[in-house]
Amino acid sequence: MSRTFLMLIRRDLLLAHRQGGGSLLAIAFFVLVVSLFPLGVGPAPEMLERIAAGTIWVAALLSVLLSLDRMFQADLEDGSLDQLALLPIPLALVVLAKTIAHWLTTGLPLTLTAPLLGLLMQLSPDAYGALVAGMLLGTPILSLIGAIGAALTVGVRRGGVLLTLIVTPLYIPILIFGVSAVEAAAQGFAISAHMLFLSALLSGTIVIAPIAAAWSLKLALD
């Protein structure tokens, strides 16, 4: 079972690699959105520093949202979702493997890009650790909740817009904890509470989301 699980992750990584561009596109979008803000609110460093955490997190959230609709859609279209559903392991594990692959190709690259954007946004030097740690814990939750939305809307007409509408409200707690951790760190406060909340959210979501997404996928296959 664990071999199949790892093989599934490798499969999605290989496909992402072959088809190419997925991660780069998310990163480009991430950088682009963040760089709109200095253009929008003006380049005053103190202003940028104040909005840095929020801007980077919101942009990361949008980049993940944008990448979600292909999560199951491509596999549904060519019929390989049938084959994945018929593997001799529970569908929830298939979903979990695909979600991990999704995180490795979007959430992780975004997390690694975030410090660079911190530089552009004049982020306080004390806050980089909190930004990266928060994103390391938070972006997997974005992928997991996103998997539910992607599974609910796979094969649905105009599923992409619907997916955004469904998933965005559920992302709000992660945004709040992620941003407030960065702000706390910038002001020299401890961020352990924020990290604990994010960890708790992650451990809850990692159990519930694959099951809910698997139920939803069954509908698309039915």
């Binding site: 539910i148 609910l152 469904i166 409200p169 519930i208 809910a212």
Partner: peptide, 26 residues
């Protein structure tokens, strides 16, 4: 299908609402 999908979403939302409320208050 619509009924089942919507039911799953309603339950996911119900689990999330207390978390959202808590985080918004925070």
């Amino acid at each position: 299908k619509a009924a089942r999908a919507a039911a799953i979403l309603a339950l996911v939302g119900a689990i999330n609402l207390p978390v959202i409320k808590f985080s918004v208050e925070w």
